[in-house]
Simulated assay, not measured.
Amino acid sequence: MKATIPALAVLSLVLGGCAGKGEIDATGGITAVRSACPTVAVPANTGDVTLFDPATSTDASAIDVTAAMTNVRSTCNDAGDQIVTSVTFDVHGLRTRTDGARDVQLPYFITIVRGGGAVVAKRIATVNLHFDAGQARATASGTAETQVARSAATIPDAVRQQLTRKRKAGEEDAAVDPLSRPEIRQAVLRATFEALVGFQVTDAQLKYNATR
């Protein structure tokens, strides 16, 4: 069953991941075809989280802990049948009250999205922020991993030939972008994956991030 993520449709790309670029040469063929590795991104409004005390308040005076995900990096191993992407990131936390040591566990997710909207896999883990007594700041690191079947991330040969076919001036389709054809565009989308990582925020936290 396919799932969609309309609330996260607008992505804040934090790095290019392993994706490549297609460039159209002088004869109309695409000379550089993108990698099968997924692009890594943080969905909008999930890169930071705010905890309140009391939890029902969103007043600035009630802010308890804030945390932000930074330094998101990825490596991709596409040598085998499974394309494995490893993601690492840092979390910087800030708390209001510093009386005593404290541990704050924050859930985060790693999601594989196919074709720009269909969620095909999701995992949730937690990262622990440890605040020493008297300290307002804490830093932690998190990791995540995704796997995509190479067969699913590979553009069919027939479509690849359409994308890379040389076009001579004067031919009927010389000036036509092959990606303007729905069947070609859909085939490329089906083979395109994104690895999305962010805090597993509640609906209320997501709304707060979007409207503050």
Rank of each mutant, 00 (worst) to 15 (best):
S61G: 10
V40N: 04
K21L: 07
A174E: 13
G47S: 11
E172W: 09
H130W: 04
T39M: 11
T31D: 09
S86E: 08
D59N: 13
V197S: 07
L189C: 01
F89G: 04
G20Y: 11
A60F: 08
M69Y: 03
R190Y: 05
K168V: 08
E171K: 02
L106K: 10
V120Y: 02
G134H: 05
S74L: 02
F131I: 06
R165T: 10
D103V: 10
V72I: 13
K207N: 14
V120N: 05
A140Q: 07
T27N: 14
A41V: 14
I124Y: 11
V119I: 15
D173G: 00
L51R: 15
K122E: 15
T27D: 11
N45W: 08
K168E: 12
T56E: 10
F131D: 05
A9R: 15
V72P: 10
A140S: 12
S180F: 03
G142W: 07
A101R: 13
A26D: 09
G116H: 11
T202K: 14
D81H: 02
V87H: 08
F131E: 04
N45Q: 10
D81Q: 12
I112P: 00
E194V: 00
S141I: 01
A62E: 00
I5W: 09
G116W: 09
K168Y: 08
Q186E: 15
V176A: 13
L94P: 00
D132P: 03
E194L: 07
R165A: 15
D81L: 02
T146A: 08
G22Q: 06
T46D: 04
P156T: 06
R123I: 01
A174D: 04
R102M: 14
H92A: 10
E194T: 02
D53A: 13
A41T: 09
A195D: 02
D81R: 07
T85Y: 02
G28R: 00
G80Q: 11
T202V: 03
P182V: 09
N77Y: 07
S61N: 12
A118C: 00
